[in-house]
């Protein structure tokens, strides 16, 4: 079940991605409309984070390409934002919540520029949106996990992008943060932004997202959740037989196949 979209804003074309010559994503090919909250769902090791990282060009694919708003990624970077996994940075870093959120304004000001009052205003608004304004001057090392996650969201908001990629924002957060993130996702999709969220918990997925991308190294289904969230497709995602891909992957790793 792969739903085709007429006026897509994200087009992923036949993406194949490898680590050490071994493909971890095979021929991923789909597109998404605007104004939705899409969840990327699949078991551990399904390549969910790899998918969003290669869509954003952080990992270069063996094959295939991505277009956002019909343009190659490098033309459009300022309209794309990213919320990395919380564990990807060192929270002992000497910075305040405000310092981190201001980073979202970097591209607006260029190489040698400086943040101005407008940037600070936008950063404050972004913190407000995730209920973190009271903590603006708190050092990030003293924030709870959920609060750190919200700071990351605020940073993405401050960028005022149109499409957001989020890597496991719900992982290990408290109830308040969960509610706050959900709220935010809804609000933003109402204002026409698109959110693509990596999520590992099948239980909550149906409540969180409008669309779903079922992934297990290959694409199983993409579409509105009512169409995609079926026993059959879930079964295929979590228990699908991949022996052909696995064998092929091993051959490729051994052969050092030249690119």
């Amino acid at each position: 079940m792969i739903k085709r979209v007429d006026n897509s804003i994200l087009e992923v074309h036949d993406l194949t991605v490898s680590y050490h010559n071994k493909p971890v994503l095979w021929n991923i090919d789909f597109d998404l409309p605007s104004g939705i909250v899409a969840g990327i769902i699949g078991p551990n090791g399904a390549g969910k984070s790899t998918l969003i990282k290669s869509i954003m060009g952080l990992i270069s694919p063996d094959q295939g390409y991505t277009k956002i708003f019909g343009q190659p990624l490098n033309e459009i970077r300022s309209r794309v934002s990213y919320v990395p996994q919380r564990e990807s940075v060192d929270w002992d870093f000497p910075a305040s919540a405000m310092d981190v959120v201001l980073m979202g304004r970097y591209s607006e000001r260029g190489f040698w520029g400086r943040y101005n009052d407008e940037d600070r205003k936008i950063a404050k608004q972004s913190l407000e949106q995730v209920d973190m304004l009271p903590f603006a001057n708190r050092q990030i090392s003293q924030l709870s996990g959920g609060q750190q996650q919200r700071v990351f969201l605020a940073r993405a908001l401050a960028q005022q992008a149109d499409i957001y990629f989020m890597d496991e924002p719900f992982a290990g957060v408290d109830a308040a943060t969960e509610a706050s993130i959900l709220n935010l996702l809804r609000e933003m999709s109402h204002s026409g932004k698109t959110m693509i969220v990596v999520h590992h918990d099948l239980q909550s997925a149906y409540d969180y997202f409008d669309w779903m991308i079922l992934l297990n190294r290959r694409l199983i289904a993409v579409g509105p959740k009512a169409d995609v969230f079926t026993d059959e497709l879930i079964q295929e995602t979590y228990g699908g037989n991949l022996s052909i891909l696995a064998t092929l992957g091993n051959i490729m790793q051994q052969k050092d196949y030249p690119k």
Partner: peptide, 19 residues
């Protein structure tokens, strides 16, 4: 700004197109 951002979170910096 650039040094601070790329030191704290190089992956995010890459994603938003920082050199």
């Amino acid at each position: 700004r650039g040094l601070f951002l790329t030191t704290f979170d190089p992956e995010y910096a890459d994603a938003i197109g920082v050199k």
